[in-house]
Design a protein around this nucleic acid. Structure first.
Lengths: 223, 223
DNA sequence: CTAAATTGAAAGTAATACTATTATATTTGC
DNA sequence: GCAAATATAATAGTATTACTTTCAATTTAG
């Protein structure tokens, strides 16, 4: 998987950036270091000025790649879900047993990424931490309908709908396939968050994983 | 229910505010109008200056009640979950049938509040809209662990753990009661959000409700 | 090797997120 | 009913944020 990934160019909607960060050294540095800085200080405290300082670049140069920090977060999220889609497709194709296919899919989207199978400049383990902590902020804005129309969340929705198809193969009668999958994908981020911060309202921890909870849930709901 | 609620003083952790807004006319105006203004322009665009203008008051007066807008949102959330807890306890006490009790509890926390059974200065239907759109932001900050220790999220956690107790009555063997309930409570807000903004990844709408989805889910998981 | 594109540095603007001070209004306690 | 205490309003001020603009220096591409 690693070998293939290192050759993979992850596609992100052009409207999200001003200039494609994959096309220059500075662009890649912006992506690489923004992931580290957002993880370190949190998205709310993150500014382009601070990032500029970190990468020895001027604030104004960063603005040539992204209009604002919200768009940068949308970019990182899109990249993440695109990478997730790749893993999902790679893992589930040619699996004939439908239940096994679904279980693999659920495992892929719910497990915490702890190993760093790094594409050169992107640390997926840390990016996963950012998604757990900050992804919800890409959606919860007054501009969500407009940005949705522009296709900012297309990859995210496609990941969910790919799993919906698998659910329908397992049980074509179940009437809530979309809601089940969107609940699993969003909910697993939330369960990881609770494991890290509000342990009294989750059963998930190092030994009992979020993935086990959702595998069990899907099994019970679709049988 | 309305009659009882109008006499009810909802308790909110003292550390959340500088001065209790329930103790003055200005305080109540701050709460009342902040709900309307956050709903209208979104939390990210909301400022104390704009709120001051709206209520014909000075910015500096609002700072005597709340340190910053984050704390105000935490206050509104606490109030909401306290009100929810009240409805939950009121609806589920003295119901002997365990499954019926659970179904009533799930209905209470997952249904969209469309009718306005107003406490004088708080419009619960609009507050529910704010919770759907903004609640996640109270948790997703770098200060979450500190604020959790201070008890900012106690009522929210208590609501969840009350429902966990009911789940355990229905099925004492089920090993993921906490994760199931936290998934339902958080997930139902998310499903409402999807119904409003990303319809292609949810089955919930005006006819098939979020509540139906989660009643079905719990039924299947706990049988 | 020259033109075009990219980046860096500096300065500027408007808004945000406060804090402090003082004046005025209102409440309450005796 | 009045003085004292408290609450609110108005104003001004600071530091930071979130950009935009301009121009010079550097890199790169044909």
């Amino acid at each position: 998987m690693e070998i293939i990934l290192s050759n993979l160019k992850i596609q992100v909607n052009e409207k999200i950036y001003v200039k494609d960060p994959e096309t220059s050294a500075l662009g890649k540095k912006i992506i690489e270091q923004s992931i580290l800085l957002i993880d370190a200080i949190g998205f709310d405290n993150f500014t382009f000025k601070k990032l500029g300082k970190e990468i020895g670049s001027n604030e104004s140069s960063i603005y040539r790649y992204f209009e604002n920090k919200h768009k940068l977060l949308v970019y990182l999220s899109s990249w993440y879900w695109s990478w997730m889609e790749y893993k999902l497709v790679f893992t589930t194709t040619n699996i004939s047993d439908k239940k096994e296919k679904l279980n693999k899919a659920i495992t892929i989207v719910t497990e915490k990424i702890t190993d760093d199978i790094s594409t050169e400049h992107i640390n997926e383990a840390i990016l996963n931490k950012i998604i757990i902590a900050e992804f919800t902020k890409t959606l919860h804005t007054k501009e969500v309908d407009h940005e949705n129309k522009e296709g900012f969340f297309l990859i995210y929705k496609r990941v969910i709908n790919r799993i919906v198809s698998i659910v329908k193969e397992v049980n074509p009668e179940y009437p809530f396939a979309k809601s089940l999958v969107s609940t699993i994908v969003e909910g697993s981020l939330h369960q990881h968050f609770l494991t890290d911060h509000l342990k009294t309202i989750t059963d998930c921890n190092e030994t009992v994983t979020t993935t086990q909870f959702y595998l069990n849930l899907a099994e019970n709901v679709l049988r």
